[in-house]
Computed example of a mutant assay.
Amino acid sequence: MAWILSATAIFLLGVYKSRNGVLMQPRLRNIFISCILLLALAWNVRAHLPNSNIDNLIDLSFHFFGASLLVALFGFWSAITLLFIVALVGVFGISGDLVETSRHYLLVSVIPALIACGVMKAVQRLLPKHLFILILGNGYLAAFVSTFATGLLIYGLQQYFQMTSFGTSDPLGWFLGLLVLSFMEGSLSGMLLAILLVYRPQWVSTYQEERYMNA
């Protein structure tokens, strides 16, 4: 029950915080629907790594999470609001388990989104304002760091609370698999962000043309 209450509270807070943001823009409505459906599909189309737990959605499997990319596109609060709907469609729609849905939402959506948001703010504050830096920082680096840090946190929780359903108990296997997963997440996020910045820059809320094109 704690998982469900926590997930619901964060979702409602996200709705409140983003009430005047990009989620209220009718021109982006089709984009939101597309993101929800594509991510829900991506969460369930996976190639499992060795020693992973195929019976649980929280495991080291070769697939795309997308939390960092949504933060880069729409901002943190809008991203976690959309990710809640993704979890309902992609997890609850398959398993019918609200606890599993809430746990997935909190551990592999909210936490990486929060870490990615922190990385993006650090990139914006510390690094030069160039388009390449934006793609590298908000696309690749934010996705890699958020995925890797979240994986370490999940493994730590598994060890501390003896949550064996989270995946493998092999530290080396977990670490190597996490590196592969993080590189894949970073590469896909960076590539997709670069494509969107070229063809649909108006969809990327972290992009300000006057700041990055005149630098």
Rank of each mutant, 00 (worst) to 15 (best):
V89H: 10
W77C: 01
H63L: 06
I4G: 04
A142M: 01
V86S: 06
G14D: 02
T164R: 13
L178W: 01
S189T: 09
F166H: 06
L157R: 08
F65K: 13
S95F: 15
L60Q: 08
F74Y: 11
A142N: 01
Q25A: 14
V71G: 00
L57N: 14
M120Y: 02
L73P: 04
L28A: 11
K121I: 14
F144R: 02
S205W: 10
L49C: 04
L172F: 12
F183I: 11
G173M: 04
L49M: 06
W43A: 01
A194W: 09
V71T: 03
V45I: 14
F144K: 03
Q159F: 12
M191H: 10
F32V: 10
A7K: 02
D59M: 08
L39Y: 01
Q202R: 15
G139C: 01
F132N: 12
V71K: 01
I33Y: 12
F183A: 09
L152G: 12
L5I: 14
L196W: 04
G118D: 05
T81W: 05
I54S: 13
L136T: 05
G75I: 00
Q208P: 10
L28D: 14
F183S: 05
V204E: 00
E209T: 14
L37G: 07
V86E: 08
N44V: 08
L131G: 09
I54C: 14
D55I: 11
F11G: 03
T101G: 05
I33D: 09
A87R: 01
I80G: 00
Q159E: 13
A42T: 05
I115M: 05
G190M: 02
Y140D: 00
S18P: 06
L82S: 02
L188T: 05
D170R: 06
N51L: 15
K17H: 08
L73I: 07
C35G: 09
M120E: 01
L23W: 07
S146A: 10
G14F: 04
S34V: 12
V123P: 04
L98W: 10
R211E: 13
F166W: 07
V180K: 09
N20D: 14
G75L: 03
L153V: 09
S52A: 08
M191K: 10
L107E: 09
L178S: 06
S18M: 08
Q158K: 12
L12T: 06
D55G: 14
G137Q: 01
G21P: 08
L60N: 02
L12H: 03
V86W: 04
V91D: 08
T81Y: 06
M120W: 00
M120R: 00
L172R: 11
L57W: 15
R27K: 14
G186V: 02
V204S: 05
A194C: 11
L114F: 11
S95V: 11
I195K: 11
S165V: 12
G137I: 00
L12P: 03
V110I: 07
V99R: 13
E209L: 13
